[in-house]
Amino acid sequence: MRRNYPEKPDKVYFMGTCLADMLYAEAGLAGIRLMEREGVKVIYPRDQTCCGQPAFNSGFQEEALEVVLHLIHCFPKAYPIVVPSGSCGAMMVRHYPELFEGHPLEQKAIEFSSRIFELSEFLHHVLKISLKDQGVPVKVTWHTSCHAKRELGLGDEAKQLVKQLENVELKELEREDECCGFGGTFSVKQPMISGEMVLDKCSDVLKTGSDYLLSGDCGCLMNIQGSLEKQQSRVQSMHFASFLWERTRGS
């Protein structure tokens, strides 16, 4: 466990992230539904945009700071902030304190950071959800986000959630925690290296014989899904929140 987790709160904020907003909107909504089902009121501030990671990781910290200044004002109350993406979570937890070093709003940024939870850790450690599988038997595999693991310090929370599903067989990747090659602008600045990496990740996925590839990071997911589709693979890529919700929603 990366930290001491609080008691189950009445209300939480949901920080959807720009990638989930535009590419994995259903995953975002599924994350919200999973928490609502546990009796938690979920608030989605409409003015939220992006955690600032794309510019920050490219060396454009001043530009990132402007966007972050906007973002942290969208979450004024002391509720926990849940994020459906390990990499964005890591940006907010690990890098805001340094981004704001010496800034008049440094304390506010640190306080904001301390309220960030990645979705799987929140479901597992705070809401302690139990899931009742209603789906047909399938095989799935799991790709770990580098930043969730190495920057945020998450363990296998998401896999624990998936393992609760009776009819789901989890097939582990041979190199689960090897980078998929996305790396934000890395994928376009170093396209050949990034391409080799995602091809290797895909062949690892295909070797498991899984029906689904699950991940908790929209960047990795967009990358691996794009490559699997390019290869016309039958493996479906899905955010774990969508997967958990689809299999337990009961309709």
Binding site: G16, A20, G28, P191, G226
Partner: peptide
Amino acid sequence: WSRFRMVPRFSEKPLHQLV
């Protein structure tokens, strides 16, 4: 990007709209 991958598919409605 598209040398190795399909171009990302955007959601029919963004999350902002869904919520």
